[in-house]
Design a protein around this nucleic acid. Structure first.
Length: 888
RNA sequence: GCGGACGUGGCGGAACGGUAGACGCAACGGACUUAAAAUCCGUUGGGCGAAAGCCCGUGAGGGUUCGACUCCCUCCGUCCGCACCA
């Protein structure tokens, strides 16, 4: 809300005085006086507050809630506008709509601000929330603010702690030691995304791998279900489902063991378990390789000092894309051999290799160089044999050889097993089946389905997060905080003058007595990953003040979210975590469904041209001015280099501040522009001319509405069902029908194009001084027009509604229903083709039989000319669509 | 490397397998104005033509079809996701 508008509670220019100034002049629509006024009216009438009401169908529309960074950006404007259009539309359609807003308020930026600006994370966060709430409210969103939640509020996170204890009791939580990225300067764990070229993104210090005890949520218990249930999410984008599918990464294979022996042939007690999906290539195995992190490596590193160095070297490689591509396949021979399970007296060497990951399968593989590129590179380096065992059917098995590229049989139907004893001649599928059967029969292994998905590590060595409600006792181990002691509150008296987690060095907070034995114990000082907070907020919105995590009645009524809208960047993490968390809540009785989001929409980004000076400094769009077809710096006059449109980002300064746009053009203009022209799933380019166009449209409609409002009651004496009226009424009702469908399908750009068309049609109908359509028809058109754009430009719609003298608020008006009679045209214009080329068009009565159409089109001059005297072979007539005369 | 999406005027983009370019932006011409802004009217894919109209045209090439931006195959390009996953 602008300050100006904010000060005008209920002040409004009297319509009477507006008309007195001049009966003909229409003043410009002024968003500064209008928007604040209507926002206040909606608030005062509690227009958007919602309660469960079993008598009405519900509709839950939710946009991904924002992180309170301090200011909204254009991405927010786009996201929340889309959700708001849907919310307002569904409300008008009679649904009981839940459209809430909250804050994903824990996280690192608050701590960084504390360190840099010496403000408390809590103060910083709540100030940001206040500022962003004000900005969002200035957009005129139809949000039920009475349900607002902030994840950093104890009234929210206490329930998260309670559910964690429930998950713990249900066996969904595990504490285990895992390898983490450790920043030795900041003294904290970093997420993979925060490690850039092997260094901490803030400190710049080389990141270390550390083994730390961490809390895990056992998402892998649901690997299979999370995967198979994707098929039922038919209102999710195919892209997101595929991304999740790949992320979960199911593969079918076999886990089996090799017996090991040393150089002298003496058997070891421990076998080596490997996992493979290519067990058909077992006869091509010429080595085994284990991860440097494998248990066996650790044992052997006592004997091989170079193994420890190799391990460090492997860790230093990093996991970035180029690092992996550049990295040479390297290994260390361990002095051990694996006995081939199907070949007598054949043993293959065992290596520790840098390309074997401990985190997948068994952390150990058998190498088949002929049919795996990595294995091939490794074999060439260490002069290991390369035995092809799968070859094209057409190839000669005796001469088929592998050069620099492993043979990866893409089309299994064209290949056959060779050099493989009892498998020779089989297809890959047959060979897999045979080997799996034999391995199982001999008891040396089993078929196994593996998933790429890892358990979700939720511990963070951070202050500004939800405390994990656990107490560590020397005698009793990890003890849950008793429920009557919840919430575990974050202490506020913390300092940020040293690196590391302030909770860990707080003088008193962590020292508690053990709830179990009463002895001295310590609190868990890690806090939850903020993705935990956002994994259930949608359920909390159903009853945000309830004393338990969820109010079942409310959740049963409102959930699932009918339409979820957000950026595709959350396609995996947030959306997968939420799907898991909902299942965990189901299992622990907090919710009665598995899938939280019935329909998902991922909107595109807001992009903008970049400007930079010759020296390469980025320049804000507001400092760039267009001059003689080029762009110059507003202050220096220096010519600027124009870059491609990219995602708006602070670092490239190609940002436009929503607040300044709302102040200058109004929220409705910004909303309208966001919805126009570009399909919502694509990136939209913010342009000044586009915004100005949206603003001009508002002014044009304002004049149209005012002129129609001032028309005297019918003077023409014409009937509302004469031809001109009828045609306009058809246009009005057909628009209404199309716009309704477009909004429901989230095709906002098309809905807007239709609204433009109708506005144009009404303008034309109004224009002629004589012979125009009756006032009643124009009024009908204006009223429907206003209702159609009301979800998109709600303030302007209220203002127009008032000018038209309509009762009440448009926000309370029911969505109009198009008259069925007017949707079906009586006549239809069809194209007439000759040999598939359009030669004419003809307007016919709708539903005219094919034979009649045929005889009509064959008489057309243009058709006869195009036929050029040739014989008619046949005439294709698709009723009410097209006629095609085939000649030749 | 694997998986996916997308290529249509100067630009954003429309188009159940059925009149390609709706609607918007930009540009150009005109009206109004002392002038500008604003507004209004008109033109705007390319080519030929006085016009009627004809020809070409949806990344390239092929195919299916009476008819293809749309379906199928091959190729080129752009973008996105995942990635030593055995």
């Amino acid at each position: 809300m602008t300050e100006l508008a904010a000060s005008f509670k209920y002040w409004y220019p009297n319509p009477a005085t507006l008309e007195q100034t001049s009966p003909m002049a229409i003043e410009r629509y002024n968003h500064r006086t209008s928007e604040g006024y209507w926002q206040q009216r909606w608030t005062d009438e509690k227009a958007f507050e919602t309660a469960a009401d079993s008598a009405r169908p519900k509709y839950y529309v939710l946009e991904m809630f924002p992180y309170p960074s301090g200011r909204i950006h254009m991405g927010h404007v786009r996201n929340y506008t889309m959700g708001d259009v849907l919310a307002r539309y569904m409300r008008a359609r009679g649904y009981n709509v839940l459209h809430p807003m909250g804050w994903d308020a824990f996280g690192m930026p608050a701590e960084n601000a504390a360190i840099e600006k010496d403000v408390h994370p809590k103060a910083w966060t709540y100030e940001n929330i206040a500022a962003m709430r004000r900005q969002l409210q200035s957009m005129g969103l139809s949000i039920d603010w009475s349900r607002e939640i902030a994840t950093c509020d104890p009234s929210y996170y206490r329930h998260e702690q309670e559910m964690f204890l429930d998950f713990l009791a249900a066996g969904l939580v595990e504490r285990k030691v895992s390898q983490v990225n450790w920043d030795p300067v900041d003294q904290t764990v970093l997420a993979n995304e925060q490690v850039i070229d092997g260094r901490g993104w803030r400190s710049g210090a080389p990141v270390e791998k550390r083994e730390l005890a961490q809390w895990f949520l056992k998402i892998t218990d649901y690997s299979d279900e999370l995967l198979t249930a994707l098929d039922r999410l038919d209102k999710w984008p195919e892209k997101v489902r595929l991304m999740q599918q790949n992320w979960i990464g199911r593969s079918e294979g076999v886990r089996f063991r090799f017996e090991l022996e040393d150089a002298e042939g003496k058997s070891l007690d421990q076998p080596l378990y490997v996992y493979t999906t290519r067990h058909d290539t077992i006869f091509g195995a010429t080595f085994c390789a284990i991860s440097p992190d494998h248990e066996l490596s650790k044992t052997l590193s006592l004997r091989f000092p170079e193994l420890a160095a190799f391990k460090r070297e492997t860790e230093a490689l990093g996991t970035s894309e180029e690092a992996i591509e550049r990295a040479e396949k390297k290994g260390i021979f361990l002095g051990l051999y694996a006995r081939h399970p199907f070949r007598q007296n054949v043993r293959i060497p065992v290596y520790a290799a840098n390309f074997v990951l401990m985190s997948y399968g068994e952390g150990a593989i058998f190498g088949c160089p002929a049919h795996d590129q990595r294995d091939l590179e490794f074999a060439r380096k260490y002069n290991l044999p390369v035995i092809p065992v799968v070859a094209p059917v057409a190839a000669n098995p005796r001469t088929f050889a592998i050069a620099d590229v492993a043979f990866l049989d893409k089309d299994e139907s064209d290949v056959v097993l060779i050099n493989s004893d009892f498998l020779n001649g089989m297809s890959v599928a047959e060979a897999k089946e045979e080997i799996a059967r034999r391995i199982e029969a001999r008891g040396i292994g089993k078929r196994k389905i593996n998933y790429r998905l890892r358990d979700w590590g939720v511990s963070r060595q951070r202050y500004w997060g939800c405390p994990i409600p656990i107490i560590h006792c020397q005698r009793c181990g990890t003890v849950p905080v008793p429920r009557e002691n919840l919430p575990v509150l974050l202490p506020e008296d913390v300092t940020f003058d040293q690196p590391g987690n302030p909770l860990a060095r707080h003088p008193t907070w962590k020292h508690v007595s053990c709830p179990s034995c009463g002895g001295a114990a310590e609190r868990e000082t890690d806090t939850f990953d903020t993705f935990v907070d956002s994994s259930w907020y949608f359920a909390r919105f159903c009853a945000p003040q309830f004393e338990r995590p969820t109010d079942k009645a409310a959740v049963n009524y409102w959930m699932p979210v009918d339409q979820y809208i957000g950026g595709v960047e959350h396609a995996i993490l947030h959306l997968l975590y939420s799907r898991f968390f909902t299942r965990a809540m189901h299992r622990t009785g907090h919710i009665a469904l598995d899938e939280p989001f019935a329909s998902l929409f991922t909107q595109g980004m807001v992009i903008h041209t970049t400007f930079r000076t010759r020296e390469g400094a980025w320049v804000l769009p507001s400092e760039a001015i267009e001059k003689d077809k080029s762009w110059v710096h507003a202050e220096t006059g220096e010519e600027l280099i124009i870059g491609p449109a990219e995602k708006m980002s602070k670092s490239k300064k190609n940002v436009v501040d929503p607040e300044s746009i709302i102040d200058r053009y109004g929220a409705d203009t910004a909303r309208w522009f966001m919805l126009s022209d570009t399909p919502p799933e694509r990136d939209i380019e913010w342009t000044e001319s586009g915004v100005a166009g949206a603003w001009r449209f508002i002014q044009r409609v304002w004049r149209l509405v005012n002129e129609i409002a001032r028309l005297p009651a019918d003077t023409s004496g014409r009937s509302v069902d004469d031809a001109a009226s009828e045609a306009l009424r058809r246009a009005i009702h057909q628009s209404l029908h199309a716009v309704s469908l477009d909004i429901e399908g989230l095709r906002f750009n098309r809905a807007i194009a239709r609204i433009y068309e109708l506005a144009n049609a009404l303008t034309s109908a109004l224009a002629p001084a004589e012979g125009g359509v009756p006032t009643a028809v124009l009024r009908e058109g204006a009223i429907i027009l206003v209702q159609m754009f009301a979800p998109m430009m709600p303030h302007f719609a209220e203002e127009s509604w008032r000018i038209l003298g309509q009762p009440g608020l448009v926000v309370h008006a029911t969505w109009p229903v198009p008259e069925a009679r007017l949707l079906a045209e009586e006549t239809v214009t069809i194209a007439v083709q000759v040999n598939g080329r359009r030669r004419d068009e003809v307007t016919l009565r709708r539903g005219l039989p094919a034979e009649e159409v045929e005889s009509i089109v064959l008489k057309l001059d243009n058709v006869r000319r195009a036929m050029d005297g040739k014989q008619v072979r046949k005439v294709i007539v698709v009723p009410d669509r097209i006629a095609n005369v085939v000649v030749g």
